[in-house]
Design a binder for these strands. Sequence first.
DNA 1: AATCAATCATTGATAGGTCACACAATTCAT
DNA 2: ATGAATTGTGTGACCTATCAATGATTGATT
Lengths: 148, 148
Amino acid sequence: MRDACSLSDEILYHVITVQKELAQLFDTEMDGLSSTRFDILSNLHHVGPLRQRELQQRVGVDHAAITRHLKQLETQGLITRERCLQDNRVIFVDLTDDGRERIAHWTEQKKCLSDRLFVNMKVEDQQQLLELLNTLQTNIQHERKTLI
Amino acid sequence: MRDACSLSDEILYHVITVQKELAQLFDTEMDGLSSTRFDILSNLHHVGPLRQRELQQRVGVDHAAITRHLKQLETQGLITRERCLQDNRVIFVDLTDDGRERIAHWTEQKKCLSDRLFVNMKVEDQQQLLELLNTLQTNIQHERKTLI
DNA sequence: AATCAATCATTGATAGGTCACACAATTCAT
DNA sequence: ATGAATTGTGTGACCTATCAATGATTGATT
């Protein structure tokens, strides 16, 4: 990605490096909570109890990853998992009281962090950035569909 | 990152998802060549033989990761590694003829792909996107520095 | 000259991701 | 009603990343 000879190359390269640095910043700032785990807890916090399957789709990682994350979060006492009585395949995931408290705090922490990253960027610039990222994302998705 | 309540949250969330989808598109399109490996070969292609250490810094991954990638690329016959005679600690990495041929082809393939991802975006929009990503990146880097 | 510090590469432990496969429960077709 | 597909979850194998510790080599200090 480095040694980009074209504008588009350079943009793609930056998307990758920005994400990488962002993830590292996130990890050090949030005392070890990974961005995926934050996502899991955040979904449960805002939406309420969720089937494992739906949680997996919302967070956007593999089934296997979700299974393992939830197992760990359960042993840490942040979430509970219960089989559904109507459909014995599905598992309902919910926050414990402790988990609810912790994710509320983490959310606050993350909000401060993300605000700090945009202090010197005008709101209209932020909006345009978001819009451009959206365009890029739909292009990527379109490309991926035509591949399959 | 999902369930963003603020503009900044939403931007960061998009950076992450765009990168993720980009990496997956890249992988499927480039017959299994990961973006890191592309980076390694691309650096060698444009810059020439490099010390392993400098290659590592350019690509921006850990020492360990570079060691393992290079080991694999060597067994695939794409690169060579030779100890430096003057300084027996360093290893010089270079492309083989086969590697040179392959990376040239991959570069072409990638160029087509990245062009396709920006067909519907005006050049001035691309420039602004790049600029905004740069701003964000320097903010992240600044934040990481103040942390340590 | 001997030792101590710095540099470069490697290795092991650990974490997170994918894919492929397995298994149980449910739903659908005929 | 029963056999076949589908769905939800769990597990194993593998890949890539990090960090920490190790080893080897060089350079610097005394």
